[in-house]
Design a binder for these strands. Structure first.
Length: 505
RNA sequence: GGGCGUGUAGCUCAAUGGUAGAGCAGUAGCCUUUUAAGCUAUUGGUUCAGGGUUCGAGCCCCUGCACGCUCACCA
């Protein structure tokens, strides 16, 4: 452990404490109240007109110190808030107060016991009668100054460098309270999603992360190897194929919240591992799923924010149902000026796009071209929550066809703030059709496309036992958390986002 | 992967090719109701790494690394 000068000074204090018979890392604390409990207790006593002294023992991290000769004000912070400590030579004696001044630094975890009082300026405080070190910090917190004014935390020169914040998230969290709030909101989001689905009689399940055959999405997987079994395994790119097997088995409403892994580029909305929610709802279809989605997101907004509107990137988003519904064909016509319905083949559509001066990636299928039009023209315009529906068949191999339209499937995606939030369809449950779709995919991707999917024979076996009609749904939970916490990058809602390795060590 | 930008003290930031600085933190002294903890003094640097140009490089050039923005990729 390489120590800088500031850290060496603190280590010297540790040695001085031990030499004086005090343990800087005692095994146990003697904390009786959180800061919030202590304050509440005192305010209640005050309101009741009680003269009985409120005695507490509180613990927390030392966040500010104001040394005034023979007295000292300090703030400690625990997981519930902040509390001012008032240390006087009158109660503590000169020796103890000097010990506090000399051995206690900002960032240390300490314990203080005493009587709750209100100081002359009116701040609820602990008049300290005894104190102890709970855990000495060696590295100073990367916040120069931090205080509470009118209940607001004011920071002067805090920790802002994104790289340091992500690599040392512990320091970021310790020093930036709004970061802690983001992750509290994220946790509430996940809890609310679970509660909503539980209340709608969905069963939460867990399916394999290590899979011998990956599928359910078009993405490159991470590959790993089981030494004993001498077997290649893939980290899942979706839960879909396993969850639908469960509907075959009679678990007709299931969901899973967990991690997906995709071996692709990173961006403000992509991380190599991300949290996905998928649910499958027997006897439903994509229209019913749309309605449930609206209700679910509105429910989450209520639980997390207490309201259904949120300002994201300066724009107010309204999550009140119903969301705007826009047929994909119409949306592309409105924004790109091309009616995909007039071009049933990839060649014809590519021709129409070139005529408009749009760059066409050679070898693209019709579906990929439509997806490109969607991404480039339509997606940026979808700010308010919108369901795009009816998607091209060749990029949706697990979705059921739209009756009467051989090129189109019953699929929708939810877009908010120009970003894809969720993806759902009426699930294909015809095993023979499914098999031919797999084969179709295999041919379309044959020319060395590494998104080509292996045939999953066991999945077909499951389908052949019969799966009830159902609507399936997938949503990026990180992206929902971004929207609800007004964060413009996924890294801000991941505690430990993926960063490149450093060259040291 | 491409383009643009950034990298200087623990943190936030300065510094025409000419002595590397400030605020806060730290250290020392003074101070019995503070709240950007006041006054006084003071310590602290592999300027991301490695090469080059130059009498002289934080600054200019090259290579590499990391981060940010952006484009590409990504159902």
């Amino acid at each position: 452990m390489e120590l800088n000068d500031l850290e060496k000074i603190r280590v010297a204090k540790i040695e001085a404490m031990r030499a004086a018979g005090m343990e800087p890392y005692p095994t146990r604390s003697n904390v009786t109240h959180t800061t919030a409990e202590a304050i509440r207790l005192f305010e209640q006593a005050e309101a009741a007109g009680s003269t009985e002294p409120v005695k507490v023992s509180v613990g927390g991290r030392l966040r500010s110190e104001r040394l005034m000769g023979k007295l000292c004000f300090a703030h400690i912070e625990d997981g519930w808030g902040r509390l001012q400590l008032f240390l006087r030579v009158n109660e503590l004696g000169e020796e103890a107060l000097n010990r506090f001044r000399e051995q206690f630094d900002l960032g240390d975890f300490i314990q203080a016991e005493g009587v709750m009082i209100r100081t002359r300026t009116g701040e609820v405080s602990v008049q300290v009668q005894a104190f102890a070190m709970l855990a000495k910090a060696i590295t100073p917190l990367p916040a120069a100054k931090d205080e509470v004014v009118d209940g607001q935390v004011v920071r002067h020169a805090g920790l802002t460098d994104p790289e340091t914040r992500y690599r040392q998230r512990y320091a970021d969290l310790a020093v930036n309270p709004e970061v802690r709030e983001v992750f509290r909101a994220r946790a509430k989001t996940v809890t609310a999603l679970r509660r909503f689905l539980d209340e709608h009689d969905f069963l939460e399940v867990e399916t394999p992360i290590l899979q011998p055959i990956y599928g359910g999405a078009a993405a490159r997987p991470f590959v790993t190897f089981h030494n004993q079994l001498k077997q290649n395994l893939y980290l899942r790119i979706s839960f879909e194929l396993y969850l639908k097997r469960l509907l075959v088995g009679g678990l007709e409403r299931v969901y899973e919240i967990g991690r997906d892994f995709r071996n692709e580029g990173v961006s403000f909305k992509h991380n190599p591992e991300f949290t996905q929610l998928e649910f499958y709802w027997g006897y439903a279809d994509y229209l019913k799923v749309m309605e449930l989605t609206e209700q679910m997101v509105a429910y989450v907004c209520d639980e997390v924010l207490g309201k259904r509107t949120v300002v994201y990137d300066g724009q107010e988003l309204d999550f009140n149902p119903p969301w705007r519904r826009l047929e994909l064909r119409q949306g592309i016509l409105d924004t790109a000026g091309i009616d995909i319905g007039l071009y049933p083949t990839g060649e014809a559509l590519a021709e129409a796009m070139r005529a408009k001066g749009i760059n066409v990636k050679p070898g693209s299928t019709r579906g990929k071209l439509i997806d490109a039009l969607l991404s480039d023209f339509l997606e940026p315009t979808l700010i308010q929550p919108t369901f795009l529906y009816n998607y091209p068949r060749d990029i949706s191999p697990l979705a059921k066809g739209l009756p009467g339209d051989p090129n189109t499937v019953e699929r929708f995606e939810g877009y908010v703030a120009g970003m894809e939030l969720c993806n759902a369809f009426t699930e294909l449950n015809d095993p023979l059709d499914q098999e031919s779709r797999f084969l179709e995919m295999g041919r379309a991707y044959e020319a060395g496309d590494d998104e080509r999917h292996p045939m999953d024979d066991d999945y077909l076996q499951a389908m052949s036992y019969g799966m009830p009609p159902c609507g399936g749904f997938g949503m990026g939970v990180d992206r929902l958390a971004m929207l609800l916490t007004d964060q413009r990058t996924i890294r801000e809602v991941l505690l430990f986002p993926h960063l490149r390795g450093t060259t040291e060590e």
